[in-house]
Computed example of a mutant assay.
Amino acid sequence: MALSIPDTEGLSEDSELKEFKVSPAMPPVDASKSRFPYCVVWTPLPVVAWLAPFVGHVGICREDGVILDFAGPFFVNVDNFAFGSTARYVRLDIDKCCFPPHLSGHTCENGFAHSELGTGISWDDALRMGMHNYQHKSYNLFTCNCHSFTASCMNRLAYKGSIRWNIIDIAVLVLLKGRWVNSAAILRSFGPFFVVMAVGLLIAGWPFLIGWAAFSGLLVAWFLIATYCMSDVIHC
């Protein structure tokens, strides 16, 4: 039976190509059917993204490409990505995860801590544990959100040997490694922002730009300070 070859269109760097050579049988991405196997996915957050286009809703996908996302209090979406279709995705490497059959079988450097956190015997098993955990958590945009859920799943996977993934790490991962699904996704993500900026500058002028900069700065500052200086507040 022929093996499925992962989608490497648009990859120009040798290091990026090597990332996919380790798993030649990885199922391909099929954006038309909203299937993103082994991916972190992102879509712009309505209204908020009109002022801060870097703000979005994220989820993590099962082996079959179905999206899981923490979308509200005690609720994890399955195959129904909140706030619209996927705009960007990051393909992850299953070979960089840790699935220990027992305590001494860890491939990560945090064996005991990883076991205390919760380990899975497969990708889907780790995501299932994360989903069950967040089905008992209350949602809060500023302290316990979709990024928190995705980071929790990455920690259960011990992706790249780390169990310290947080909301900033997830945001940076999407920002730096995310691939756009198509040109329409780029327009959907940035179009409203440019319209709002143009109208705001036309009506209010420079004070609007100053207000926008203050809003964006405060938003970024909150998540940075809360993540690295007030972990008890933002941890969930």
Rank of each mutant, 00 (worst) to 15 (best):
M1R: 14
I5M: 06
P6D: 04
E9W: 15
E9R: 15
E9H: 14
L11V: 06
E13G: 04
E13F: 11
E16M: 04
L17G: 02
L17H: 05
K21M: 09
A25T: 10
M26E: 09
P27L: 11
P27M: 07
P28E: 07
V29F: 04
K33E: 04
K33D: 04
S34Y: 01
R35P: 02
R35V: 01
Y38C: 03
W42P: 04
V48R: 08
W50A: 14
L51C: 11
A52H: 13
P53A: 04
F54H: 09
I60S: 10
D64L: 10
D64Q: 10
F75T: 07
V76L: 06
N77K: 13
D79R: 05
D79I: 04
D79C: 04
F83D: 12
G84Y: 05
S85V: 03
A87D: 07
V90N: 02
V90H: 04
D95S: 10
C98K: 02
C98T: 03
F99P: 06
F99L: 06
P101T: 12
H102P: 07
L103H: 10
S104C: 10
G105T: 07
H106Y: 10
T107H: 12
C108T: 09
E109F: 12
S115N: 14
G118V: 07
T119P: 05
T119G: 05
I121P: 06
S122H: 00
S122F: 00
W123A: 01
D124Q: 11
D124G: 12
D125R: 03
A126P: 09
L127D: 00
G130I: 05
N133G: 01
Y134E: 05
H136R: 11
H136D: 11
F142I: 06
C144L: 09
C144P: 02
N145K: 11
C146A: 15
C146W: 08
S148I: 03
T150K: 15
T150G: 15
A151P: 12
A151C: 13
R156E: 03
A158F: 10
A158H: 12
S162M: 09
V174L: 15
R179P: 05
V181P: 03
S183N: 12
I186C: 10
R188H: 05
R188M: 08
F193Y: 14
F193N: 05
V196D: 08
V196Q: 11
A198E: 10
L202E: 03
I203H: 05
A204W: 15
F208D: 13
F208G: 11
W212F: 09
A214D: 06
F215Q: 12
S216L: 14
G217S: 08
A221R: 06
L224A: 09
L224F: 14
A226E: 00
C229F: 08
C229Y: 03
M230E: 01
M230I: 05
S231Q: 10
D232P: 10
I234Y: 00
C236R: 03
